[in-house]
Design a protein around this nucleic acid. Structure first.
Lengths: 340, 340
DNA sequence: TGTTAGCACTCTAAACTCCCGAGTGCTAAT
DNA sequence: ATTAGCACTCGGGAGTTTAGAGTGCTAACA
């Protein structure tokens, strides 16, 4: 769609004003505050055009204009010139990410805290999915007479542990047997193959000894499932409660409170930066909100997502800028970690 | 304070009606719905007395009565006959707690989910504090060339792990040295003594070798700190958003979103079951809410807390009943686990 | 003395009306 | 193509009215 430059400038002005104030804006105010060198009548004509194009609407006949979802869409597609954040902000992000401790999980937790803090809206970060990963090795630590901890280390450097409990007393020898037998089989296997079927054939191949293993194997399966499934960290959802639209906020809270739902959000996200506005969202709970999402990369492959969720009139420019910078740095820092 | 039986019954009726409907209730409705054998005029007299006693108030001169905080207080102190939950509910609680996996943390997570589900309000559960616990032992698992996992096992059977990373390549021998040296010192020590001061004297006593240890010791300190500090699991806070009082809900969300704040809530709770109504709460964020809390016991000692947070007009009877039963069962099930 | 019927009184919330003013679209002049 | 001018629209705030739920008081009654 080809649209005259002045129309675009006016559209941008309306949207940015509305994002800032939340109030419908009319031709006169627009003329005064934005310093256009044209009369309000001319602006009115343009506004009428933009309205009939479907980019703006009026809450009622005699009110100012408000962007429609299509308007926001055009804005983010064509009128958003995103810059890197200020040096001060960049420094701040760096320092906060560096301060997180040595687990990727904690870095991602910091990402979501950081995003919601800087943008004053809800933020989400997902851990890398383990779907590409393989078992590197599995270790055992005895923690009690009947209990032990299984530690799974994946080829991607992720570490997951799981407690299990047997109904017989565990001896160190037994753990050595478990360790050797299990690692011989699973080392190098894709995580998703460590499932119930595998456990059965594995236990069966040990005859009587196999009877001692189900608890241990169950723990292994669960550890793999943990490593395979992405976890989702959220922050600042309550901030939305202070920003007007109660039902939108409530729905977002609902969505983010449900781990399964929020995980699903990122399952089929295309990589790169994406913005979903209102009804464009896959979840009906986001029908009145916007989601801005970007991927972070580990070894040049998209690993997980950072995202913010806010009202339709969220600060898209700032959001994209900060999202992309944070994602870049988070990827780099996690890479350093794993390289070790 | 001595109060005639009939007055008490009327007070109870008003409060229970208000809890159910949220509407002020007047003398006539009270007479009709609760089947008192006295005229509405008589009820009016009693209501006037209860009002001047400070247990009831009127939103405006010509409206029905609503309980005051003092009214709720009298109600929970004197008029609450708590029964065990139904068999069906008991079964349900049991099965849900059994289904949680073998870590106390997961059981407590289930508790909070369960409470908020059954009572439709926000629920909280805290893990046992480790303040009484001592180090049982510490184990190491190598997870990468430069990284390892430290596993802390406490005398209370709690297991915490922590990753750490050194800037030199780790060898199995080195871990064996760490293991032996560290355990010799710390086994049996109270968790809170494993702190920076300890780490310094410990590292110092190893001379040059001590220079290799700071990362490992840092991890040990953090694991102990983890084990020492109670974690707080919350569920269902969003349910409050559907129950009228928005600012109360918002404040609760705020409180529960902040781990430090919500931990503080339970720091000095007396054991047993307690109810804090409105301004009785220590946190100003709960000024418009009620908190009902009970302890669960491990080996006959109070270990942690289960609680629900809801509006002043929460269903106190159901809440206490379900809280106490859940706490009892949770304690028992955790005991079984740890006994192993 | 405790209970009750009757009644005048109070007060809110909902419905209705009125009107200001911001904002519009159209027309005619530049 | 732009602009000034103007009649028109309409939401929402202010003021008014009204219905009805609920009260407290009084006087009669058991």
């Amino acid at each position: 769609m080809k649209i005259a430059l002045r129309k675009q400038q006016i559209l941008a002005a309306v949207i940015e004003s509305y994002i800032q104030t939340g109030e419908p804006i009319g031709s006169k105010t627009l003329q005064n505050t934005q310093g256009f060198n044209i009369s309000s009548a001319t602006i009115r004509n343009e506004l009428a055009d933009l309205t009939s194009l479907g980019f703006l609407k009026q809450p009622h006949t005699s009110a100012g204009r408000v962007p429609t979802e299509a308007g926001y869409r055009f804005y983010v597609d064509n009128l958003l010139d995103v810059k890197e954040p200020d040096e001060r902000v960049r420094r701040y992000i760096d320092s906060r990410l560096r301060a997180s401790d040595d687990a990727p999980e904690h870095i991602l937790e910091s990402c979501s805290a950081l995003l919601s803090e800087l943008l004053s809206i809800a933020a989400v970060a997902t851990t890398p999915s383990g779907s590409e990963a393989r078992v590197h090795k599995i270790r055992f630590v005895q923690t009690g007479r009947y209990t032990s901890m299984l530690v799974l280390i994946t080829s991607a450097g992720m570490v997951k542990s799981r407690l299990f409990r047997c109904d017989f007393a565990i001896t160190p020898e037994m753990l050595t047997v478990f360790d050797r037998a299990l690692n011989e089989q699973v080392a190098g296997m894709r995580l998703e193959y460590i499932n119930k079927a595998f456990a059965q054939t594995f236990a069966a191949s040990f005859g009587e000894l196999g009877l001692l293993m189900p608890d241990m194997l169950m723990a292994a399966i669960e550890a793999c499932r943990d490593a395979l499934s992405t976890s989702v960290y959220t922050s600042g959802a309550t901030k939305l409660l202070y920003q007007g639209d109660l039902i939108a906020a409530r729905n977002v809270l609902e969505l983010l409170g449900d781990k399964t739902e929020s995980r699903r959000l990122f399952e089929n996200m295309p990589e790169g930066t994406n913005i979903y506005i209102g009804k464009e969202n896959s979840s009906p709970l986001l029908r009145h909100s916007s989601l801005a999402q970007t991927s972070y990369y580990i070894d040049n492959r998209p690993a997980g997502a950072l995202a913010v969720i806010g009202p339709l009139r969220m600060n898209y420019k700032g959001a994209v800028s900060i999202l992309e910078y944070t994602a870049k740095r988070a990827g780099e820092i996690i890479e350093e970690l794993i390289a070790g």
